[in-house]
Amino acid sequence: MSIEEIETEVKEEFALFGDDWEGKYEHLIDLGKSLPKIDPQFKTDDRLIRGCQSKVWLHSRLENGKVLFTADSDAIITKGIVGLMIRVLSGHRPEEIINAPLEFIDQIGLKEHLSPTRANGLVSMIKQMKLDALAFQLKV
């Protein structure tokens, strides 16, 4: 599936919740809990994206021309959103990642988590995912 198709899938998934904030956040928390663990060797300070409050660790590698991401966070809701980002971006070619609009976060009603005041490191994480993709693109 293309990035766009996965975004559509995520949007449809969240549309089911409508105004039910509880369902939406329970889903995010589940996503956070089920996010595959990052290899501890990559959970290092140089891979740490520091928000003011929660932390995000991001690891990326290139396999067969596709970028694979793993990540972790100390806050579970942040981790759920991190999981969504990975689901959308991981396994795609660098240029697809660089050009991904990522509007789905806004459209599924999680925009506030990307505001700089949320201080959760997500904005920086997205930037880092794209930067990593860019670095891989220059290598290939």
Partner: peptide, 13 residues
């Protein structure tokens, strides 16, 4: 077992 920010987010909701 919880992060303060997660609590804050769910209180805000």
């Amino acid at each position: 077992g919880t992060h303060p920010m997660d609590i804050g987010t769910l209180l805000d909701q």
